[in-house]
């Protein structure tokens, strides 16, 4: 019981940069963050899938979050990372992002709904926006990102 109260009190957001935007997801949804770049390409896969990865004997599909959000392709660099989250049915999926940023603790009450002028693909994937002193963190809906029903 105490735990559930705590969760309501504050959420820890792991933030990262996709394209130029600062995004965050609940840290409890993240399995691990790694920088394995030894991906196997899958011809004919959806455009936003950059490849598949061998994660300790498990095959993990890597999604380019930049492409999925319509923020442009993420380039492999020193800073780029895979955020491994678990999707439906315990399947692990990697989100490929440009750079990892801090973990911020936020009060759920401080999260505001996504601005209404955020349209299109991006609007669909953000559940809200957190305002810190100097920056805005867009909070992503992991479930929605991982769902593949909306493949154009």
């Amino acid at each position: 019981m105490a735990e559930t109260n705590e969760v309501k009190d504050h959420i820890e957001l792991s933030t990262f940069i996709v394209g130029t935007a600062l995004c965050g997801i609940d840290i409890l949804q993240i399995q691990e963050i790694n920088k394995l770049m030894d991906k196997t390409e899958v011809p004919q896969a959806p455009e936003y899938v950059t490849g598949i990865l061998n994660l300790r004997g498990q095959i993990v599909t890597i999604i380019d979050l930049g492409k999925k959000l319509g923020l442009g392709q993420t380039k492999t660099s020193q800073d780029s990372r895979n955020i491994i989250v678990s999707g439906k049915g315990g399947e692990h999926i990697g989100l490929f992002v440009k750079k990892i940023s801090d973990v911020v603790t936020v009060n759920p009450q401080q999260i505001e709904p996504a601005p209404s002028n955020m349209k299109g693909i991006q609007g669909d994937f953000f559940t809200g926006v957190h305002k810190s002193e100097d920056k805005l963190v867009g909070i992503l809906d992991v479930e929605k990102i991982l769902s593949h029903a909306d493949d154009q």
Binding site: T40, P46, V49, I52, N54, I59, G87, E91, I93, H148
Partner: peptide, 27 residues
């Protein structure tokens, strides 16, 4: 044989994936 993730179900050309001796994946 290892199954492919749900995002790749639409790729009909593959029956799955496997991990080779060198740790790389092949379809």
């Amino acid at each position: 044989i290892k199954p492919l993730g749900c995002h790749l179900q639409q790729c009909k050309g593959y029956a799955g994936a496997t991990i080779m001796g060198d740790g790389q994946i092949s379809l």
